[in-house]
């Protein structure tokens, strides 16, 4: 909880938070404080603007000639055919989101509820229908937990074409950006995207380039720390 006498200690950490140098523990501490302390929040906003302003000092440089077309291609806007493919992928993610939403009951914060009698059976029917519509094979879910074991959300993995991962966070320890990493059963860790968390909650989805069966673990990191992990059983 925020206490006025915390402010002097916080002030010394605000610059570290603004530049990204604060450790995960310190980030949680400071963010918890500034939520209830307008003075420290204003100070943090000012310092963050200064830190962001430093990035403006990087001198402009012309990228390679094919840069623009490469970006547009990645955005699926390089031609009508790729536009269609990108939209279909986005639609897949949207469908994925809807499928996962079938397993979510949201009431302000996204709380996952599994065992609910008739509701659960209805959800199971909808789940099977969704899988059949998208020619999916199965949907896996695993708890996203803090190092102390507290559940902070859920990850959903869909095996289909394409396969995808949906991360739903309902009670993250801190707000901000979390990098999403997938560790396969061979131990290889790859970064696949990020999830923006606001008010301790956030949801995002990405296409998976490996089979769901090969995924051993999902890690969500913030400033090199790994505050959230989901382990997939064999």
């Amino acid at each position: 909880m925020t206490r006025p006498h915390d402010c002097p200690a916080m002030r010394s950490l605000l610059a570290e938070l603004a530049t990204g140098a604060a450790s995960g523990h310190e980030r949680a501490w400071v963010l918890g404080h500034v939520t209830g302390c307008p003075a420290c929040r204003a100070e943090l906003d000012e310092l963050a603007k200064v830190a962001d302003g430093l990035l403006m000092l990087a001198p402009p440089a012309e990228p390679p000639p094919e840069f623009e077309s490469a970006v547009l291609k990645r955005l699926g806007m390089a031609g009508s055919r790729t536009v269609g493919r990108r939209y279909s992928r986005r639609m897949m993610l949207a469908v994925g989101g809807m499928a996962a939403a079938l397993l979510l009951v949201s009431g302000g914060s996204a709380t996952v509820v599994y065992q609910q009698g008739e509701t659960d059976r209805a959800l199971a029917d909808q789940y099977r229908q969704t899988l059949s519509i998208a020619n999916g094979r199965y949907l896996k879910a695993a708890r996203l937990t803090t190092p102390s074991g507290a559940q902070s959300g859920t990850v959903f993995l869909y095996q289909g074409s394409p396969s995808w991962l949906l991360v739903s966070i309902s009670s993250a320890p801190t707000d901000g950006r979390y990098e999403i990493h997938v560790r396969d059963r061979g131990g290889v860790l790859r970064t696949i995207g990020a999830c923006q968390v606001k008010d301790h909650a956030g949801t995002t989805g990405y296409q998976l380039d490996i089979a769901v069966a090969h995924v051993a673990e999902i890690q969500l990191t913030q400033n090199s720390q790994t505050p959230l992990t989901a382990t997939l059983p064999n």
Binding site: A58, P59, P60, A61, E62, P63, F67, E68, V71, L72, L75, M77
Partner: peptide
């Protein structure tokens, strides 16, 4: 998208 990329590609690449 094209205009946006052209406007800021040198800043981002820089």
């Amino acid at each position: 998208a094209t205009t946006f990329v052209r406007r800021y590609q040198s800043r981002v690449y820089g």
